[in-house]
Simulated scan of single mutants.
Amino acid sequence: MEKEILKNLYFDSALSIAELVKKLAKSTPSITKIINRLLEEKIIVECGFAESTGGRRPLQFAINPALNFYILTISADQHFSTFTITDLNQQKIIEHRDIPLELKASNSSDLLLGEIESILELSGINSNKIIGIGLSIPGFVNSELGVNESYPHNHPLYRIKDSIEAKYQLSTVIENDSRCIAIAEKEFGAAKGIDHSLIINLNWGVGLGIIINGSVFKGESGFAGEFSHIPLSDDNTLCSCGKRGCLEVEASLDAAIRSTEADIQNNEYSIYSTFVKSNLNKIDALIEASNVGDQIAINNLGKIGYMLGKGISTLIHILNPKQIIVSGRGAELGRILNPQIQIAINEFCIPEIAKTTNIQMSALNKHAQIKGTAAIVVENHINKILIQ
């Protein structure tokens, strides 16, 4: 039960004994006994009193920040990866953001392994203080087997988890990027305390994490949530999956970038062409252009918002969720996307079904994947601090 208590203290930062009793459905004496033992071993500390609910204010507990245990996370997308080391109080120690790393490149696994070495060396943290490494990555990730089945068996990224563990002798967890974002929203964001939620990861592509009865739903073979490949597009553009008609080709940030660059080639003026010269990541250039009112960028973002709304309408009809959260980088563009999403829902959804679903943009946005990736390490390896 110690592991479950520590997990909950990580996810909630601070909890009282009464709150732990409710969350874990255990007796007050059993929780109190473990809390006292963890206090004695200096694994947790008292951290003040909770707000009063009418009676005596309960004492709260948190993981001891002086433990100096850390989590290393790699949050990868198709073109960039962010490497982060955080402590058990969710504070960033060091971060290498948006490192160019093309997953399709033949040397992608070597670059990834090299960047892990770089951030570990710069941090100066002893490896025995790292409780684990978390890798979130696009594709058909089988977290139980620790493989990415989007790649052939002989491809280095197929067994990248094993390669990381072999090189650094650190326990490693691998998971699909959209499922990690869903976990982040469930534990820290807009889906916290909600039993049924759908979390859309809007980035270069479009992913989906499904929360049912408070747990991430993976499906029979572990690949549930391939929202981006619903055949809703009339565009003849070839999708990354090799097929045509996928939602992703018209409803992703990559689609908005392609359309903006095509407009510029057709002699339309957009300040995106200036911003893209100073931003390594084209998504940053697109966001910056939209923030200063660039009409080409805003128009193309509106188009993907409408297509996203069309896809969301399908999800509402099938699953009738309490809420749908748009997370990932795209959530930073909520003021542009939201109206177009709602127009599509009004057009394609049966009103009686749609009215019970709340659509919202994530406040975690680009930080969601990092937080969710750290969460899967905690889920699997928080007991390492008990062992040491």
Score class of each variant (00 low, 15 high):
residue 140 F to E: 15
residue 262 A to W: 09
residue 282 K to G: 04
residue 95 E to W: 10
residue 187 E to C: 11
residue 346 N to W: 00
residue 205 G to E: 12
residue 312 I to G: 15
residue 184 A to I: 10
residue 284 D to G: 03
residue 353 I to M: 06
residue 289 A to Q: 06
residue 135 L to R: 02
residue 257 I to R: 01
residue 152 P to C: 02
residue 272 Y to V: 03
residue 157 L to I: 05
residue 211 I to A: 00
residue 165 E to G: 03
residue 208 L to T: 04
residue 262 A to I: 12
residue 241 C to E: 03
residue 94 I to C: 04
residue 310 K to P: 02
residue 250 E to Y: 02
residue 289 A to R: 03
residue 236 N to T: 14
residue 335 R to Q: 10
residue 313 S to Y: 06
residue 259 S to K: 11
residue 35 I to Y: 01
residue 137 I to D: 00
residue 220 E to Y: 14
residue 291 N to I: 01
residue 288 E to C: 03
residue 358 N to W: 09
residue 306 Y to P: 06
residue 176 N to W: 14
residue 232 L to I: 06
residue 65 P to D: 02
residue 101 L to I: 08
residue 56 R to Q: 09
residue 354 A to M: 05
residue 212 I to N: 00
residue 252 S to A: 06
residue 156 P to V: 08
residue 153 H to N: 14
residue 311 G to I: 05
residue 80 F to D: 04
residue 376 I to C: 12
residue 45 V to F: 08
residue 73 T to E: 12
residue 367 H to N: 10
residue 150 S to F: 02
residue 307 M to G: 02
residue 88 L to T: 12
residue 329 R to L: 07
residue 142 N to G: 02
residue 125 I to E: 11
residue 371 K to L: 13
residue 122 L to C: 10
residue 325 I to F: 07
residue 123 S to Y: 10
residue 357 T to S: 08
residue 337 L to W: 14
residue 261 E to Q: 07
residue 63 I to A: 01
residue 185 E to N: 08
residue 58 P to C: 00
residue 44 I to W: 00
residue 144 E to L: 04
residue 138 P to D: 11
residue 195 D to M: 11
residue 352 E to T: 15
residue 109 S to G: 15
residue 367 H to W: 00
residue 350 I to N: 07
residue 4 E to C: 01
residue 14 A to H: 12
residue 333 L to P: 10
residue 205 G to V: 09
residue 70 Y to D: 02
residue 380 N to Q: 08
residue 85 I to E: 03
residue 43 I to M: 10
residue 160 I to W: 12
residue 315 L to K: 04
residue 387 I to V: 13
residue 136 S to Q: 02
residue 362 S to C: 06
residue 77 D to W: 13
residue 190 A to R: 12
residue 110 D to H: 11
residue 321 P to K: 02
residue 113 L to R: 04
residue 108 S to G: 13
residue 11 F to M: 07
residue 247 L to H: 10
residue 246 C to D: 08
residue 358 N to T: 14
